[in-house]
Amino acid sequence: MKDLSITVGWLYPDLMSTYGDRGNIICIKKRCSWRTIDLRVEPITAETTIKKLEAIDILFGGGAQDMEQEIVMNDLRGKKSTIIRKQIEKNMPALFVCGSPQLMGNYYEPAEGKRIEGLGIFDMISKHPGKNAKRLIGNIIAEVQWENLTDRHPEPRFNRGNRSEGSNQIDSSPLAQNDSLIVGFENHGGRTYLGTNVKPFAKVVKGYGNNGEDETEGVVYKNAIGSYFHGPLLPKNPHIADWIIQSALSQKYQEDIPLTPLDDTLEWRAHRFIANRMGVEL
């Protein structure tokens, strides 16, 4: 087997990493290293050259606090955004969590102050309904709409945990029927409404999602995913992590490269805890 290597571009790690966002990078990196895939992390900062940006295979963005958001957008507009848009059009997988999808939409209207123009990658708008509006906070569970992901594999290949493990039957649950669920935590004031050119990433089962009204959670365009889940989305949802890795490999090597299954017992155990807590039996 040839040596596989991919590069993940991490948008402004010191500005856009509010609350455990780097868990996604750690997750992708580890899941690659366990499979002896060489994963490089390329921080995208004000100093990043166009050449380096063009060489990435996956793009990741986390949440930013208000002050940091301004610094980020000033740097991102212009050349960098043109390249990112081009790569996403060419099916590069990307993941934006927490507040960053708002910046990738058409615009964001904060509770106070001016409308912030987004990069327009996702056809959607976000607005904050005002300072006194309720923040949407809490654990969330949603069902991924795989058919909206444009990868060549409609069903991702992933391991659902080692069923034969030990005497305590950790994974004897009928998880197989529910492998489209994602679990996590959301904490946002803004509400997002999708346009016609994009599809939702998932359907809300418990929690709020994009706006607390239309049951949509997140957004998909080509292989780019935006989600209001904040912080470490991938560790407790290894099927999404593997979908991203696999998509990146397929894009880069232009062939189907199956991923070695991993023992994800602990991942699914943590996944199931949230589901059960929210009254969804797995």
Binding site: Y19, G23, I137, G138, H230, G231
Partner: peptide, 9 residues
């Protein structure tokens, strides 16, 4: 804190 995401930091 009901959100344990911070352990990844």
């Amino acid at each position: 804190g009901t959100d344990v995401s911070w352990i990844w930091d």
